[in-house]
Design a protein around this nucleic acid. Structure first.
Length: 264
DNA sequence: ATGGTGGAGCATCCA
């Protein structure tokens, strides 16, 4: 089963590029972040034409997450349980393949948190605590699950082009990394880190020529339960989608690229 | 120290 995550920075502004990627990458399941629209504005028919199901947790202007799947989407959870949140940042469901074991997948868009310190950073840390609580609950089930998305966390110095310059940023400061390590230390596996030994990024800012200079960050992750990690067979990053010249260049790229894994 | 880019939606906020 191929599972992908992509922060698309507006599903409707990006739709031709997103559909082209779906047609070539052919993920079985994909979680999307920053769809930036209400449920009724989500382009369900474009996915329906391809035999893909949609579960959407939308929001006007900002945030918004969705799950697209070739298989049945069951038991959908919108928002982190037991966490008051005005922003649409989490969607979880049970994906039931036609043949094979069901997999629970959580798609998340973790708050950016800048400027730090401050109320936005406090929100980020409380959101991470709620995610940790959810991970604990799911781990107790002892089943395969994947928490995938835009974590807005740079785990290590090798995951940022200029570690010193980013030291006080909400994506890299010590408290953020500590919260991320607490999540990993519950027993989750950072799938891309395990499968990809080399330096690689998943995000390049639109500004300051970040793409041309390869000034990137690794902030999109797949965290796997032990039962899912046992089935991990491949992982990758579709960097080509970030190229402004890709395709006919008429639709601008997202600042994030798709990140994917395969489970046997 | 500022601005550089991009999306939403119409003045600015967010990233």
């Amino acid at each position: 089963m191929k599972i992908a995550s992509w922060n698309v920075n507006s599903i409707n502004a990006r739709l031709p590029r997103i559909l082209e990627w779906f047609d070539s990458a052919r993920p079985d399941v994909c979680v999307l972040q920053e769809i930036k629209c209400m449920d009724e504005k989500f382009p369900v028919s474009a996915f329906d034409e391809r035999g893909l199901n949609c579960a959407v947790f939308g929001q006007k202007t900002y945030n918004g997450v969705a799950m697209i799947s070739r298989f049945a989407i069951e038991d959908v959870v919108r928002g982190l349980p037991d966490f008051e949140d005005e922003q649409s940042r989490y969607i979880e469901a049970l994906i039931c393949p036609d043949d094979g074991e069901p997999v629970r997948i959580g798609g998340l868009y973790l708050p950016n948190g800048n400027p730090a310190p401050g109320p936005k950073y406090d929100y980020k840390l409380s959101w991470m605590a709620a995610l940790e609580a959810r991970a604990k609950t799911l781990l107790a089930e002892e089943e395969a699950f994947v928490l995938a998305g835009d974590y807005n966390v740079i785990p290590q110095a090798q995951d940022v082009y200029d570690p010193k310059g980013w030291r006080e940023d909400a994506l890299f400061r010590q408290e953020t990394r500590d919260a991320f390590y607490r999540l990993l230390n519950l027993g989750l596996t950072d799938a891309l880190r395990v499968m990809e030994e080399d330096v690689f990024y998943t995000f390049w800012d639109y500004q300051r020529g970040a793409w041309q200079k390869d000034n990137g960050l690794r902030i999109d992750h797949h965290l796997l339960s032990p039962q899912a990690a046992d089935r991990l067979s491949a992982a990758g990053v579709d960097k080509y989608t970030r190229d402004p010249m890709h395709g006919d260049g008429s639709v601008k790229p997202s600042d994030h690229v798709p990140v994917w894994i395969e489970l046997d």
